[in-house]
Amino acid sequence: MTDFFFCNFERLVKQNRFKNLSELHKEWTEAGVKASRATTHRRVKEFGYSCRIPLFKPLLNHRQRQRRLTWAKEKKKWTVAQWSKVFFSDENKFCISFGNQGPRVWRKGGDAHSPSCLKSSLKFPQSVMILGAMSSAGVGPLCFLKTKVTAPFYQEILEHFMLPSADQLFKDADFIFQQDLAPAHTATSTKSWLNDHGVGVLDWPANSPDLNPTENLWGIVKRKMRNKKPKNVDELKATVKETWASIPSQQCHRLITSMPRQIKAVIKAKGAPTKY
């Protein structure tokens, strides 16, 4: 096997990390190499590549990256104590089947966050099922969403879920509420509701779920549910609720203590997605 064919093959892998083994084998043999599919797979591994599930990161335009960078610089001097006053919220979708994990990517050790190995996540998922919130003191109760979240419906959620959760987690201490920039969250009526109830809101850059520690909690819940086999939506809800409630406050606190490091990472990345 000549060095030329070796180099040519590695270029094939690098050009598109998301080609499957059959596609790589076809292109390599079409280039004039006589090799079995097993040999192709062996060569990929010899170059140091493994087939992995890609990380999903938000797709950011230049303006959004600049806004994230500005936001991170503004928060650069925030301490863990300041971040502990933030009540983070986030929406996430759970499916009954966890078997379909989507595309795979060829990557080497340390390449997980390389742009060529990432898949871009969309800002708006096709459906949203659950809204959860957390602070340094622990998690609040989940709100299962049955309909599109309009501004009036969101304000009901704030009243019946967010405020009681805040009372439970922060007691009489002041807190700052974090939410993303979804239309229902930024509606004039919602802003008025928050102002009337004396709730301060953390400024937040657009399309930045990776800056929210609640995203990490969703990941923890889904990993814990890998071996669960809910048969219907009711069983799924019960499983998610039970798993979410089992998250210890210490785990939430550890995520909050990582915020200063995350801010530094955003600045270093000039507003691009980070490993967090």
Rank of each mutant, 00 (worst) to 15 (best):
S89D: 01
E91Y: 12
G109W: 01
G110M: 03
K123D: 05
V128N: 04
V128L: 10
P115Q: 02
D90H: 15
K85S: 03
V86K: 05
F94Y: 13
Q101G: 10
P125Q: 14
G99V: 08
C95A: 13
K123E: 09
S97I: 07
G109Q: 05
F94G: 06
W106F: 06
K93E: 08
I96N: 12
K108R: 15
I96E: 10
Q101S: 14
I130P: 00
Q101A: 13
V86G: 06
F98R: 15
S97K: 11
S97P: 09
I96D: 10
Q101K: 13
A112S: 15
F124N: 14
Q82I: 03
P125R: 15
G109T: 07
F98I: 14
V86S: 04
V105N: 00
C95L: 11
G110I: 01
P125C: 08
Q101V: 07
S89R: 01
C117D: 01
F87S: 10
F87G: 10
H113G: 04
M129Q: 01
W83G: 03
P103H: 05
V86H: 05
N100C: 11
V86P: 03
I130V: 15
G110L: 03
F94A: 11
S84A: 11
R107E: 08
R107C: 11
P125F: 07
M129R: 02
K123W: 09
S121T: 05
V105R: 00
P115L: 01
N92S: 15
R107I: 05
L118Q: 02
E91M: 08
C117N: 04
S97V: 06
V128S: 08
D90C: 07
G99H: 10
A81K: 06
R104I: 02
F88T: 01
W83I: 04
D90A: 09
K93F: 06
R107M: 13
D90G: 14
P103Y: 06
S89Y: 01
F98S: 15
E91W: 14
E91L: 10
G109V: 07
S127D: 09
G102N: 07
V128A: 06
F88S: 02
E91G: 12
S97W: 12
G102M: 12
C95E: 13
P103C: 02
Q101T: 09
C117L: 05
V105D: 00
A81V: 00
R104W: 02
K85Q: 05
S120Y: 12
G99T: 14
K123A: 12
L122P: 04
A112K: 15
F88C: 03
N100V: 05
P125E: 13
V105C: 01
W106Y: 07
V128C: 08
L122G: 09
F124D: 11
R107V: 02
P125V: 11
S120M: 13
P103Q: 07
W83T: 03
